[in-house]
Design a protein around this nucleic acid. Structure first.
Lengths: 184, 184
DNA sequence: GTCTATATACAGATAGAC
DNA sequence: GTCTATCTGTATATAGAC
């Protein structure tokens, strides 16, 4: 049995990935677990406090996935495939990546949360850059590892975005083929 | 001197590309040209009516740009470069592509506007697919023209999205290099 | 076309009782 | 921790006068 704090975080994360932070309401959130909105404010005084927790949680779970990839996969192609699997799971769940959704709403974020978001993107890119660079010889492209990392991450974010509007997963599939076609 | 209808459309388009449709307020819009919100309802009875006009306008301007590209550019690389220029202009103006922003907010669109958005994406992909296919011999990739089109468009949308969160244009630049690296 | 006035709904947030 | 009650702000939308 989970405590209310965790339940609220779970529901909030799902809601933000589906409908956005601006559309998230403390009232609706409270209704979903049968408490009042004032009780939600007990856990998260302001909406920005909740957003901060969501970003931190997403970051933690993401980084443990990345560590698992480093341990389990050997070839570069396998590592990048496993990385893309993270996005495929998000797509299957009819969600956007939290980062992608917040990026669309960046003008509504607190300054602090804007920085957290930027550093999360930056760290994902760094992981990709390092992963590419460590097995650079497996790459067949004129681009630098950093450029490939930037294009790959933003490409996957865009694929999730457009696929949601189109009701299928064709762009994520195309993006995956595109990225993997650069690796041997 | 533009009429109020056009002024409202201009301001609304800019606002949606920057802050999203959900954040767009008839009151604020009215204030910006010195009329009352009830007068905005005279032109656009409901918010979804305004959104529909914005999508149609965006579509018209986009397609005339695409036609110009077909007439002016010869090589495939030049055509695709010119296509990417459209996104570079959007980025320089600190906006998102209207389609990308609405895709993030797709759960809040009316059924009709959801369809308009999907068909706009679809037509952009068709244009790209046709353009790639017509000069297929200039492409150095194992992907089909349709897959390249899907990956390119969603990649550019994602680049705009992530770049906004990061405060620079590095992902759009990387995406451009990535796409053009497949063309001879 | 534009206004005033208003109905209605919902948002974030807080005070204070239990 | 959770509640009731409330303040305050803002949103969409409409009726009816000018």
């Amino acid at each position: 049995m989970k405590d209310n704090r965790s339940l609220l975080e779970d529901l909030a994360l799902e809601s933000v990935q589906r409908h956005g932070l601006k559309a998230l309401s403390f009232r609706t959130l409270a209704d979903e677990i049968g408490i009042k909105s004032s009780s939600v404010h007990y856990y998260f005084p302001e909406k920005s406090d909740l957003a901060e927790v969501l970003i931190a949680r997403y970051r933690d779970e993401l980084f443990s996935s990345l560590q698992a990839i480093e341990l389990q996969s050997s070839s570069l192609k396998k590592k990048i495939s496993a990385f893309i699997t993270i996005f495929e799971r998000v797509a299957k769940d009819d969600r956007l990546c939290l980062c992608g959704m917040l990026a669309a709403e960046v003008e509504h974020l607190s300054e602090h949360n804007k920085q957290l978001l930027a550093s999360l993107f930056s760290d994902m890119e760094k992981w990709l850059t390092r992963t590419f660079e460590l097995q650079r010889t497996s790459i067949n492209s004129s681009l630098t590892s950093a450029q490939l990392a930037r294009a790959s991450l933003s490409g996957l974010e865009g694929a999730l975005l457009v696929d949601r509007a189109m009701g299928n997963h064709r762009r994520l599939k195309a993006q995956k083929e595109f990225i993997l076609s650069q690796l041997t």
